[in-house]
Write a protein that binds this DNA or RNA. Structure first.
Lengths: 247, 247
DNA sequence: GGATTTTCTGACCCGCGGTTCAGAAACGAG
DNA sequence: CTCGTTTCTGAACCGCGGGTCAGAAAATCC
């Protein structure tokens, strides 16, 4: 055999690309800038990746896999917790009960893991959020977000069912609120150099939400959500327009 | 003189462009698709606008002007309200006092106007949010969002100062929460055909926030925010990279 | 030192779409 | 109808950058 490939090249290209994507978005990021950043030439790029989007796809797949993993683990931990505890007893409904505190701490731990993930992938998340327009990744982040909103919503409905949450606030409202907050936080992460202290943040959010959503003595039923079953806009596609639509 | 221009052309192009921008983002929107949609030819576009981005700039300026107007009006209404009421008396601090209810209703009215604005401009907002990458408008929406977060934060600090809000939750947290929620809502608006009932939504959010942020008997001081004074990432710009960074 | 094989280079190709512009078309005035 | 003027058309121009490929360079084996 002859001339082994530079062992650092692949990884160097990957991380240079991440930097370049953050700076310019997927479309505007130029292959030459990526390769020059690691002292390689344009052509070398194609020895390691099939295309610019192919490289980004690698990154996105990893993020999606980790997110999926997190979702299933969260689901399992919640199931385990409930199974271990048995049925919900009246004393568990009291605001400060051991049960409520344990459940809340479970949520905090899982949310913390989510924030850690967002921190590790903050660059890619940032690109997905605002630098993927016109590519195959357009909308990936919003799909993830919609799913998370639904997850929170379902958790809320479950809590309402066992009277651990007031039922005059739509679960969807809490979902939009929680996920919307995380969205802004995720966005801010991309401009930080050092990892912030998530605890401060989580406790504040936790407090606010816990006390805002706590069961009330007198509550009316939830009115139906104004955003139910919204049809998402069609994915970008070439449009053959009809002529003369305004005469 | 001779051959007057089609009086509908300008407006027709404008709205066709809005549709096209929503469908494909600013970059991918093709001039030909815009002109064909109103039965005009490519060249005609340049009789009405100096460039594709020029057209979008017009739209963005209008949105920004309306948002600015809303901010100043909100500021003035708040000032007027406080001036008219005089100093805050002890009885005003009680959760259900006339003062608190009036203040809350003021907030609701202003928020409602914001939602109406987001509804009217939902297409442009949507494009700014996820279809402006790589253009001069990249980041416009995030700057607006950051400003709104600061506004909410300041309102919170003001409320804390007169003991109308608990002080163990950072104002910034409430800002991210409120604005993040509106962000997701704004995004959803773009996929709706009919205006939803904002009231349902506002009351749920209002309740949750009001009761979550109400003053507590025993509170510790706010810990400093982990996101303070974050340097935003540099605007997109051509990058001349140094070579050989990974020898 | 070849001989051979794989890596790496960078000039080139090519499609795309914003923008331009020479000329055609439409309209009013006389 | 003809002329002058302005609108409108669409082929042509052009820069850009992703992707290709013939050949140069580098490494290994003999």
């Amino acid at each position: 055999m002859a001339r082994p490939a530079d062992p650092h090249a692949h990884e160097a290209l990957r991380s240079a690309a991440r930097r370049e994507f953050v700076k310019s978005g997927i479309q505007k990021a130029r292959i030459e800038d990526i390769t020059h950043a690691c002292g390689l030439s344009k052509g070398a790029f194609y020895l390691h990746f099939d295309s610019k989007e192919g490289l980004f796809r690698e990154l996105v797949s990893e993020v999606e896999a980790e997110l999926e993993e997190l979702r299933t683990v969260r689901e399992r931990h919640t199931q385990d917790f409930l199974a271990r505890h048995g049925s919900v007893k009246p004393k568990d409904l009291k605001p400060g009960s051991a049960f409520v505190r344990a459940l809340r701490s479970l949520h905090t731990r899982e949310d913390q893991k989510l924030l850690e993930l967002l921190w590790r992938w903050r660059d890619v998340v940032d690109v997905l959020l605002s630098g993927s327009q016109g590519t195959a990744f357009d909308g990936v982040m919003w799909r993830i977000i919609d799913r998370e909103v639904v997850r929170v919503q379902e958790e809320c409905e479950a809590l309402k069912a066992v009277k651990l949450m007031r039922d005059d606030i739509p679960g969807e409202a809490v979902g939009l609120l929680l996920v919307g907050t995380y969205l802004l936080v995720a966005r801010r992460l991309s401009s930080l150099e050092e990892k912030p202290d998530f605890d401060v943040w989580l406790t504040a959010l936790q407090k606010l939400l816990a006390e805002g959503t706590a069961p009330r003595p007198h509550t009316r039923a939830t009115r139906s959500s104004p955003f139910a079953a919204s049809p998402r806009r069609a994915p970008p596609r070439a449009a053959r327009g009809s002529r003369r639509s305004h005469p």
